[in-house]
Amino acid sequence: MGTKNTKRYKDRHERKEMIFRGILYLSSVGILLLLIGFFVSLPLDAFESIRKFGIGFAFTRIWDPVAGNFGALVFIVGTLVTSCIALVLSIPFSISIALFLGEYFREGIVSTFLKSAVELLAGIPSIIYGFWGIFVLVPIVIDLEMKLMVINDRILPYGVGILTASVVLTVMIIPYSASIAREVITLVPTDLKEAAYSLGATRFEVIRRVVLPAARSGIIAGIVLSLGRALGETMAITMLIGNANRLPDKLLSLANIFVPINTMASVIANEFAEATDSLHRSSLIYVGLLLFLITMVINITGRYIIKKTSVSIDE
């Protein structure tokens, strides 16, 4: 090949390579810009509300679109209460599944079945959970309310409210914490367990004294990440929470477990499309911004714990 040909080939070839690398680079930078876009766009669109209500927005319990007064306290409380109840309820289930699949029965038909079933549980769309909840769970809860006679100041039991939403949320987050916990439990070194067995420990004692302590931070990470999921869960909650934009009078009463409330994600889902008033819309975006920041902090915390765990397992 002559030098002239070589040079022409070189130019054409190098341009092609540059374009290729440029595309890879642009896509990656595009991902960064996308995330930065969230950080810029949300505060910008919430600006009207941020300017008017400031940080007090998060501590105000009034949400009155007609009067133009907005505060997110009800939704923050609603989100935290439902998520925390779901979290607590889910722990025995998810740890049981994790131990079942990661420690007791790693293989076999029953494990495969349980594993696929848990995967299916994660795969069912949120809207289906909500729909099912309305037609199957709500009547059961109404029965329960009647039996317990905790009808409060209301005339009829609703069936929708904190309890119903939390129960469905529990089922929805079990697969996430279970799968992360299972992975860490599987990683607990066999020689550690064998050391304990050789000292005469029963399986339960090995699990309690060796497996669970060794897997502790991974299990916690799984729970934290499932909290992130629970906080942002929208549709099922929207259909089952009752969408009441006010706090119950006596917060710490057990009867409140049946009370309808609202969550951050649900109020956005319910009101955003109809919010024609710009302050209303910007307040909803403000709620969204708070939700975005809270879930991000929770998720990064969870990832951080996982990263630290996996490093310590590698060592």
Binding site: I31, F272, L284, L291
Partner: peptide, 15 residues
């Protein structure tokens, strides 16, 4: 960024 986007609630992505 991928991890963070993974965790963003879907309703926010709608906004």
């Amino acid at each position: 960024a991928v991890e963070v986007i993974m965790g963003i609630p879907s309703i926010i992505i709608g906004i």
